[in-house]
Design a protein around this nucleic acid. Structure first.
Length: 415
RNA sequence: GGACAGAUGGCAGAGCUGGUUGAAUGCACUGGUCUUGAAAACCAGCGAGGGUCAUACCUCCCAGGGUUCGAAUCCCUGUCUGUCCGCCA
């Protein structure tokens, strides 16, 4: 949720920065107007409440003193309909405001550049140069066919399209990667957590997935429950509606989970291979920090993800997202893209975001500092998406006959 | 899935025969006195959100309705938790 007070105080700046995210400017005008309406209707309602309260108190006194209460009762009675009306007005205004406000994305950080799409993202750095091959490297699905690592047909048979089965060393490699990554992030101070794969709508509201992106989620039929699209949802909401001590922060968490996404709206994209599946494994990092800590923790998370790729000797690059490519909850985001020699391009394998107060305001995550309560900052990042890491290993570690080597750091995990 | 019990501030736990109870008490926490320092003891403070320059003032005792001049307290509905039974990795 964006800061409505800030919107009131400095409308033009908020409007300007949200235009970077392609927010409809009339929506912001409306938002400001609704905020004002709520304020006024609340004021009148509270004044009437105060009057009612004091009369009721008087009523009690009259009764105790044995005085006649008829006149007082009449007075309260005539007030009543005005109170009911005022309450109604206030509620209507409140509902209008919150339903509108919950669909407005986070305000981009000052450092975020304007741009329409991923083509306008800024290259921060390259890590490792793309490997040279003295043959034409194959794409991972071709390699999968030869090695029998991925069974696409039977995945579709038992579920539907965009589900695949990993077999033989690929299944082992998946498990090795999960364990390797969890050990790695643990060495960087992230505490491992095992979380539910099913969450309620309240949690999804907290991270910003609901109400706007329900179509991306698998919902459990007949229940108000959903499969998680990422471990960010359970991890961040662990502290929903809590007031933490500032000396507990930063809280740095990691979890491996499966992630479930409908991939609505990406029909026809990445239909070959396992780049885009309905279910995939991911090791996710989430941090809860004070306002002062979040920028530094962001860098730690970014380094962590990048260093995992470096340890796996996978060439990659860091891209700072432009306003148009930024997600709903993010204030700023750096994507890590891994080099896929078979496809001959870089593909997203991790995304690290600082949402600052945006999710904390929705999920009511606060911390107490010097006796005062503040909204926390929340950050999330993949380290990494397992399926895409398998793709990257397949394409980068292939030889001319289509065999795939195992990265050195994973060998202890592949016994 | 069936039966019963419960849901109060960071935690524990009163209040629940309706009116100075936004809430006793204990613990935790914060500040102070004392001490070389710490502990103990003593004194003071200490729920959250909104509103205001600051006060006033408003809201919140799981959620949503209702009764009443007035509800943490009474009634209804829902959710969740616990215990027992059933089922089960």
């Amino acid at each position: 949720m964006i800061d409505l007070k800030l919107l009131q105080r400095d409308f033009d700046t908020v409007k300007k920065s949200l235009l970077l995210k392609k927010v409809d400017p009339t929506l912001l005008d409306e938002l400001q107007q609704k905020a004002q309406e709520l304020k006024l209707s609340k004021q009148t309602y509270e004044e009437l409440q105060a009057e009612q309260n004091s009369l009721s108190k008087l009523f009690g006194q009259f009764k105790r003193d044995g005085k006649d209460t008829d006149e007082l009762k009449e007075q309260i009675e005539s007030l009543k309909s005005r109170v009911t009306d005022a309450q109604h007005n206030m509620r209507v205004a409140d509902e209008a405001l919150s339903s509108l406000a919950s669909t407005v994305p986070n305000i981009p950080d000052e450092s975020v550049k304007a741009g329409d799409s991923e083509d306008d993202n800024t290259l921060l750095k390259h890590v490792l140069e793309p490997t040279e091959f003295n043959f034409t490297p194959k794409e991972h699905w071709e390699l999968a066919e030869q090695s029998g690592w991925i069974d696409f047909e039977r995945g579709v048979k038992i579920a539907k399209s965009r589900f695949a089965i990993l077999r033989h060393d690929a299944a082992k490699l998946e498990r090795a990667l999960i364990n390797f990554m969890l050990d790695f992030v643990h060495s960087r101070g992230f505490d491992e957590v095992s979380v539910p794969y099913i969450v309620n709508e309240h949690a999804l509201f907290g991270t910003g997935n609901l109400p706007k992106f329900e179509d991306d989620l698998f919902k459990i039929d007949g229940e108000k429950l959903y499969l998680i699209p990422t471990a960010e949802v359970p991890l961040t909401n662990l502290y929903q509606n809590e007031i933490l001590r500032s000396d507990e922060l930063p809280i740095k968490l990691a979890a491996h989970t499966s992630c479930f996404r409908k991939e609505a709206g990406s029909a026809g994209r990445d239909t070959r291979g396992i780049i885009r599946q309905h279910q995939f494994h991911k090791v996710e990092l989430v941090s809860i920090t004070t306002a002062q800590q979040s920028a530094e923790v962001f860098e730690q998370m970014l380094d962590c993800a990048s260093d995992i790729l470096t340890a796996l000797k996978l060439p990659h690059r860091l891209m700072k997202l432009c306003g148009g490519d930024l997600g709903f909850s993010a204030s700023y985001t750096v994507d890590i893209e891994v080099w896929l020699p078979g496809q001959g391009c870089y593909r997203e394998i991790s995304s690290i975001s600082n949402t600052k107060e945006f999710q904390a305001r929705r999920a009511k995550i606060r911390y107490k500092d010097n006796g005062k309560n503040h909204l926390a900052h929340t950050l999330n990042g993949s380290s990494l998406a397992i399926g895409r890491t398998i793709v990257a290993i397949m394409e980068n570690y292939q030889d001319s006959s289509g065999n795939i080597a195992i990265p050195e750091v994973l060998k202890p995990y592949m016994k």
